[in-house]
Design a protein around this nucleic acid. Structure first.
Length: 393
DNA sequence: TCTGGGGTCCTAGGACCC
DNA sequence: TCTGGGGTCCTAGGACCC
């Protein structure tokens, strides 16, 4: 099997390099995916025992039902009210009020405390490292990938078989429960893709093992949106082909994927067959640092916008330095108008910038062009402003 | 129901160089 | 005067993930 023939590839060596990686899964590989259950909400519940047994919603300030944010995480009790991640916080508030009227306990709304979550997250990594050591893993190669604040991939291939890997997973769950008073779900499979879907399969506190011979059956009836990388837009493209499940997607030829999805297409074709050879990744340095904020109310007023920009510039340059960077070479300003149209303006500077003041000055200049009547034709007020830096050194 | 905040990666057109 | 093509960088926007 050769890489797709494109004009540009014709003279490149890569054309003649077979990519065996996608033909089948490595039979010796055993990958685990560990995913903390309702992480933020569980963490808050643990920290405040008086919350225990109550529906908890972590996210933006609901402001008595007028808040403009969304739910970050809801615990399982809150989920039984229909409250879940990404739901507008105002809607979550309504659902909680309805539950109250039905005689159920009102939900408790809590803001995010990333400092706490980071701390717990690194302790989970420590616990996992200790277990790997006890099981005599060769730690010279990376066996843990931190895929997010509450999820990790483990390479358990060294254990040799799924039975042992399953026992490792159970023991890890028990330790996390004992030491951190939190539950995690684990999925085991021949690659990252299957492990991740498996960890989600029996939440919370589940352990799902999908050995290579079970992969096809496991995937067959799953909705394709369960595949990492298939979001709402991609899902829609499949819908137009009357494809809903992973099994049905197998009908579509490679050609469909290559034409429709560009670089991602070929990977996707194989992933829908359960084949995935992505290695575990080591942590990398940040490629951008930024913040943005949805304002309490939409506004045109410079008096409200400029202080936000300054605060963001301070925050960003501070974080840049803490991360060990001295300068940056690119800035990006984002403005979202009240009609939700979002515009960005970016610039690669001819000289690297190190100061908060210069960043702020550039951002202000750009913001003014957005507020300029000629630019802002529809006269929309501003809902969100954001600032970020890239190409840090 | 009225849509957060932190990111990463990809695409596509245009400028510019050889 | 018309016409190449590869490569890289820049910018704006968008999909997706947690």
């Amino acid at each position: 099997v050769f890489k797709r023939k494109t004009k540009t590839a014709l003279h490149q060596e890569s054309l003649f390099k077979p990519i065996a990686r996608d033909l089948k899964n490595d039979p010796k590989r055993i990958i685990a995916h560990l995913d903390m259950d309702a992480f933020f909400a569980s963490a808050e519940e643990r920290e405040r025992p008086y919350l225990s047994g109550r529906p908890i919603v972590v996210g933006s300030d609901p402001s008595g039902g007028k808040g403009r944010g969304v739910v970050s995480t809801a615990n399982y009790l809150a989920r039984s009210y229909g409250i879940r991640s990404a739901l507008p916080i105002s809607k979550a508030w309504q659902l909680s009020q309805e539950a109250k009227r039905a005689g159920k306990p009102e939900a408790v709304f809590v803001g995010c405390n990333f400092f706490l979550y980071e701390k717990i997250s690194s302790r989970i990594v420590e616990i996992t490292q200790e277990m790997l050591q006890e099981f005599k893993a060769d730690l010279r190669r990376p066996l843990i990938e931190i895929a997010g604040i509450d999820e990790f991939y483990l390479d358990l291939s060294f254990l040799g078989d799924y039975k042992k890997a399953e026992r490792f997973g159970e023991k890890l769950q028990q330790r996390i429960k004992k030491q951190e008073k939190l539950t995690a779900s684990i999925g085991l499979g021949p690659n990252k893709l299957i492990a991740k879907i498996a960890s989600d399969f029996q939440k919370p506190n589940g352990l799902t093992v999908i050995s290579p011979e079970k992969v096809d059956d496991f995937l067959k009836d799953l909705p394709i949106s369960k595949i990492h990388g298939i979001g709402p837009k991609t899902n829609l493209i499949f819908k137009t082909q009357k494809v809903n499940t992973v099994g049905e997607a197998g009908r579509l030829p490679m050609d469909f994927y290559q034409k429709g999805f560009g670089k991602f297409g070929e990977d996707l074709y194989w992933r829908l067959k359960g084949i995935d050879s992505r290695p575990l990744e080591r942590p990398t340095k940040a490629k951008s640092i930024g913040c943005h904020e949805t304002l309490m109310e939409d506004t045109f007023e410079l008096g409200k916008l400029l202080p936000k920009l300054e605060a963001m510039a301070v925050e960003i340059v501070g974080r840049m330095r803490r991360d060990g960077f001295k300068v940056f070479e690119r800035g990006v300003l984002t403005v979202r108008f009240s009609d939700f149209v979002t515009k960005t303006r970016s610039k690669t500077f001819s000289q690297p910038i190190s100061s908060k003041l210069e960043l702020e000055k550039w951002a202000t200049k750009i913001l003014l062009t957005f507020l300029d009547k000629r630019e802002n034709k529809t006269g929309q007020s501003i809902r969100l402003i954001g600032l970020r830096i890239e190409k840090m050194k």
